[in-house]
Design a protein around this nucleic acid. Structure first.
Lengths: 122, 122
DNA sequence: TCCGTTAGTTCCGGACTTATGAACTATTGA
DNA sequence: TCAATAGTTCATAAGTCCGGAACTAACGGA
């Protein structure tokens, strides 16, 4: 099998990271990989979100994340084990990833409780 | 003149911000606006960067930044005065913008001194 | 009021990107 | 060797982005 491409951490760009994480599906994937203890396979995301994601699309998303330098994919038998490169990125761009993940979390929380701050509760 | 559209801060999305700032030209514009004391006009960026940017393209970039909720544009006579919405965004997504700007700064610094850390100096 | 100038926007064609089904490759297990 | 599963690649349709040309808006004379 053709070995997967992973950029050197020095070639990882801020623009690339932001672009990769400007897609809600990809952030969700990335966040899950970053939090997970055991490296999740690609296919574990097929039925995860609200909508079913076609596997070709999913494959592209993983490729985008890999090429942005956000995750590392390693074949292990049939599956492709994905791990985050948070550590390396944190060293190069301290605080960037946590700030983004945190912002998404805030946004999510605001979406789930849209009432409290503005209306007496819908 | 058709009034410019500005999203309410509650409608500003993380994905939108990341997408808008995943373009080097737009970050540069945004950073300059955020730092500037007097609100700069759009045309002040025509001859600013390394390359000349066509004004139609520039107009699109400003529109993108406005619609992402990053800047506010107000007509003042002939010009369009641009101010950043950092304050509002900082309140909604604390640390996000600073982290991004900081990361770009680090990247820029690494580009300008690529030798020091890896080679004895080119 | 009409003209010229300057600041931005809109329109549109070509280039580039993205999503997705279909076909393909790789690995494993029977 | 065959079937099943995990991912990738290909082709195409839809969407987005760049940038020149034409347009609108606001101002300053004369």
């Amino acid at each position: 099998m053709k070995p997967l491409f992973h950029p050197s951490i020095d070639d990882v760009s801020v623009a690339g990271i932001l672009h990769a994480l400007s897609d809600p599906v990809r952030v969700q994937i990335f966040a899950k990989i970053a939090c997970a203890k055991a490296a999740p396979s690609c296919s574990s995301f097929l039925h995860s979100g609200e909508r079913e994601i076609p596997k070709s699309t999913l494959s592209q998303h993983f490729k985008a994340l890999r090429e942005a330098g956000l995750i590392r994919g390693e074949r292990s038998g049939l599956e492709l084990k994905n791990t985050s490169r948070c550590g390396e990125i944190e060293q190069r761009f301290p605080g960037l990833i946590p700030a983004i993940i945190n912002a998404y979390r805030i946004e999510q929380a605001a979406k789930e409780a849209p009432a409290r701050d503005r209306r007496p509760a819908a």
